[in-house]
């Protein structure tokens, strides 16, 4: 009688999971790197972790992208020591809103490239942070007075990150 074998999933499925995990780890690393950047202020970050969400979206689809957005904030915040603090809530709201906005743009806006998707994601991320703070922690409309210059920075970082994502995804799929 042959020994009982645990059935193994097909290689392609394993490869996909390994790729997703590698990108999740990259996103967690970038999340922690961005948290350690001192000079850019508490509101603005370059959005490199969101760039990974965008890459996962175009390579593996919306579900994988949302899972990376949630996973990197959860694990990244655990290592930084901000898990379940206001910083965590703001990061989660920003990351998830950006992911949902990028999925919507990717699905429904014809002719948009990764640059446009990244731009909308960056703007949604910044807006979501302020709405979260205003609704949960400091209920003051004056918070929004600080938004325009930060949104301007988001436009720049979103555009550059989108170009980077185009380059990286093209390299990953051997088009360049």
């Amino acid at each position: 009688m042959p020994a009982m074998m645990i059935p193994r999933p097909p290689l392609a499925e394993l490869e996909g999971k390994a790729q997703w995990l590698a990108l999740l780890l990259l996103a967690i690393g970038l999340h922690m790197f961005e948290a350690a950047l001192p000079s850019l202020g508490p509101w603005f970050k370059p959005g490199l972790a969101n760039l990974v969400t965008l890459l996962v979206l175009v390579m593996m689809g919306p579900r994988a992208a949302v899972a990376v957005a949630i996973g990197r904030v959860l694990v990244g915040s655990f290592f930084i020591g901000t898990l379940f603090t206001p910083t965590f809530v703001i990061s989660m709201a920003g990351g998830l809103t950006a992911a949902v906005m990028m999925i919507a743009a990717w699905r429904f806006i014809p002719g948009i490239s990764l640059i446009g998707i990244s731009l909308l994601g960056a703007l949604a991320h910044m807006l979501a942070q302020f709405v979260t703070v205003e609704s949960l922690f400091i209920q003051q409309g004056v918070l929004y007075y600080a938004l325009p210059p930060l949104l301007l920075l988001s436009c720049i970082s979103g555009w550059i990150n989108g170009a980077l994502a185009s380059y990286i995804s093209a390299r990953l799929t051997h088009e360049l």
Binding site: G111, I112, S113, I115, G116, L119, C155, W159, G162
Partner: peptide
């Protein structure tokens, strides 16, 4: 890379609106 920074027509329109 610099070529990539240009973006498409839709991207530039979105940037203008924003």
């Amino acid at each position: 890379m610099l070529q990539l920074l240009k973006g498409g027509k839709t991207d530039r329109l979105l940037l203008l609106v924003a």
